[in-house]
Computed example of a mutant assay.
Amino acid sequence: MTFSIVARCAGTGMFGVAVSSSSPAVAARCAYARAGVGAVASQNVTDPSLGTRALDLMALGAGAAQAIEVLRGSTPHMEFRQVLAVDAHGASAIHSGPRALGTWAEAKGQDVACGGNLLANPDVPQRMVEAFHASSGHLGDRLVEVMRAALEAGGEAGPVHSAGMKLVDKVSWPVADLRVDWTDDCPIEALARLWGIYKPQLADYVTRALDPSAAPSYGVPGDE
Score class of each variant (00 low, 15 high):
residue 210 L to E: 13
residue 198 Y to I: 08
residue 162 S to L: 06
residue 96 S to D: 06
residue 28 A to T: 09
residue 16 G to E: 13
residue 188 I to Q: 03
residue 138 H to Y: 13
residue 182 W to A: 03
residue 33 A to S: 15
residue 85 A to D: 04
residue 172 S to W: 09
residue 120 A to P: 03
residue 69 E to T: 15
residue 198 Y to R: 02
residue 168 V to N: 02
residue 9 C to H: 12
residue 125 P to F: 00
residue 111 D to C: 10
residue 29 R to N: 11
residue 46 T to S: 13
residue 114 C to V: 02
residue 158 G to W: 03
residue 169 D to A: 10
residue 155 G to H: 11
residue 5 I to M: 11
residue 216 P to A: 07
residue 12 T to I: 05
residue 172 S to I: 07
residue 76 P to E: 00
residue 157 A to R: 14
residue 74 S to T: 15
residue 162 S to D: 09
residue 139 L to R: 03
residue 145 E to H: 12
residue 7 A to W: 05
residue 204 D to M: 03
residue 169 D to E: 14
residue 95 H to W: 15
residue 122 P to L: 00
residue 158 G to D: 15
residue 222 G to L: 06
residue 192 A to H: 12
residue 175 V to L: 04
residue 210 L to Q: 10
residue 160 V to R: 01
residue 175 V to I: 15
residue 67 A to L: 08
residue 197 I to S: 12
residue 112 V to A: 02
residue 195 W to G: 10
residue 18 A to F: 01
residue 147 M to L: 15
residue 98 P to F: 14
residue 100 A to I: 02
residue 44 N to H: 07
residue 76 P to L: 00
residue 103 T to A: 04
residue 186 C to Q: 01
residue 84 L to G: 11
residue 102 G to L: 03
residue 153 A to G: 13
residue 50 L to P: 03
residue 63 G to L: 00
residue 139 L to M: 12
residue 78 M to K: 05
residue 9 C to Q: 13
residue 90 G to S: 04
residue 24 P to C: 03
residue 118 L to W: 07
residue 121 N to L: 06
residue 223 D to A: 11
residue 72 R to C: 12
residue 193 R to K: 13
residue 186 C to G: 06
residue 32 Y to M: 07
residue 119 L to S: 08
residue 78 M to H: 05
residue 135 S to L: 04
residue 192 A to E: 12
residue 57 L to N: 06
residue 203 A to K: 09
residue 97 G to F: 11
residue 110 Q to E: 14
residue 85 A to L: 07
residue 133 H to Q: 09
residue 122 P to F: 00
residue 24 P to A: 11
residue 67 A to H: 02
residue 27 A to I: 06
residue 163 A to Y: 06
residue 37 V to E: 11
